[in-house]
Amino acid sequence: MTFFRCLCLLLILCCCNSKPKTDGGTIRVSVLRGPSAIAFAHWMEETPVVDDKPLSVRIIDSPDLMQAALIKGEADIAVLPMISAANLYNKGIRYHLAGCPIWGTLYLVGRSDKGISGENKPVLHIFGAGTTPDILTRHYLRQHNTGYTLNYSFTTAQEIMQGLLAGKVDHAVLGEPFLSIALRKDSTLQILADLNRPDSVSSGFAQTAILYAPALKKSQKAIDSLLHLSCRFAVEQPEQAIRILEKEKIFASGMLTPESIERCKIDYRTASEAQENILRFLQLIGQYEPKALGGKMPDEKFYK
């Protein structure tokens, strides 16, 4: 892409971002800050175009803010937790499910695996009661009959990471990029378990959803193609993806490594390709926290 074209698109994006609800010049893409943003680094560097409209990527700082943006119709494409997508669907927010780009970033980390099955159950620190990290942790512990006392005193992954580095926490559940930061800063820490696989042959849990507005239904194939390309870019050129994400100040310098990206299990699959995996994941969520889905499983139209 030429410098002149980049400059023109940048000017277009700036103008459109000033009035997101009234300007139809761009397709507004809202991505939750965190691992999901890694899969969209390529879109931040080489602005894609659908139906002669550039895709403008905006980073959203929390799932609650993302849900608010969708309810208000302030996003044309959105990337958010799969349980949030199902919950919104059950509330009548009718975006289409494009597919899943991220298949798991959660790991059990600690200084030693000694005593995990012993009489004195070690404390496992986790955040977000009733959310995906909590549910997948409880599911893993039940599956493997592993004894831990769960502690929710820390409210964020960053606080847990700081507790690990300060020596106040010995066992915790962390996702990227905080996992890589902790491992790099404290060589005594190690990954004890991968919480993202329902079984040994699975690629992971369908934890992340990409939604798009009904008006983009006619462009579904083009969007799917761009999503495949963007996810492959992150996997095949992790150093370039990291450079873009740092330049855009999505992640601070040094937070991400190629290993971080590998541990995110980035692999875009369309809703039809991943339907069985998504259904299995949502059934698991419903088993532990039905309220997280809005009290029921979404019907078949959720996948269409």
Rank of each mutant, 00 (worst) to 15 (best):
Leu10Ser: 15
Leu11Thr: 09
Cys15Ser: 15
Thr22Ala: 05
Ile27Met: 06
Ser36Met: 07
Ile38Val: 15
Ile38Asn: 03
Phe40Arg: 03
Met44Ser: 11
Met44Gly: 12
Met44Tyr: 08
Glu45Asp: 15
Glu45Met: 13
Thr47Trp: 07
Val50Glu: 07
Asp51Leu: 14
Asp51Ser: 13
Val57Cys: 10
Gln67Pro: 04
Gln67Phe: 06
Ala68Ile: 09
Leu70Met: 10
Ile71Glu: 09
Ile71Gly: 07
Asp76Cys: 09
Asp76Trp: 07
Leu80Thr: 08
Leu80Arg: 02
Met82Thr: 08
His96Gly: 06
Tyr107Gly: 06
Val109Ser: 07
Gly110Ala: 06
Asp113Gln: 07
Pro122Leu: 10
Pro122Asn: 15
His125Val: 12
Phe127Lys: 01
Asp134His: 04
Asp134Ser: 11
Met161Leu: 10
Leu164Lys: 02
Ala166Gln: 14
Gly167Val: 14
His171Ala: 04
His171Arg: 02
Val173Ser: 02
Gly175Leu: 06
Leu179Lys: 05
Ile181His: 00
Ala182Lys: 01
Leu183His: 03
Asp186Phe: 11
Leu189His: 00
Gln190Tyr: 05
Gln190Phe: 06
Ile191Arg: 03
Leu192Ile: 13
Ala193Gln: 05
Leu195Ser: 02
Ser202Cys: 08
Ser202Asp: 13
Pro214Tyr: 06
Leu216Trp: 04
Lys217Thr: 15
Ala222Thr: 13
Ala222Glu: 14
Leu227Thr: 01
Leu229Tyr: 04
Ala234Trp: 01
Ala234Val: 08
Val235Gln: 01
Pro238Ser: 13
Arg243Thr: 12
Lys247Gly: 15
Leu256Lys: 02
Glu262Arg: 08
Arg263Gly: 03
Cys264Ala: 04
Lys265Trp: 03
Thr270Ser: 15
Glu273Ser: 11
Ala274Thr: 01
Ala274Glu: 03
Ile278Arg: 00
Leu282Trp: 00
Ile285Asn: 03
Gly286Ile: 04
Glu289Val: 09
Asp299Pro: 04
Asp299Gln: 08
Lys304Pro: 11
Lys304Cys: 13
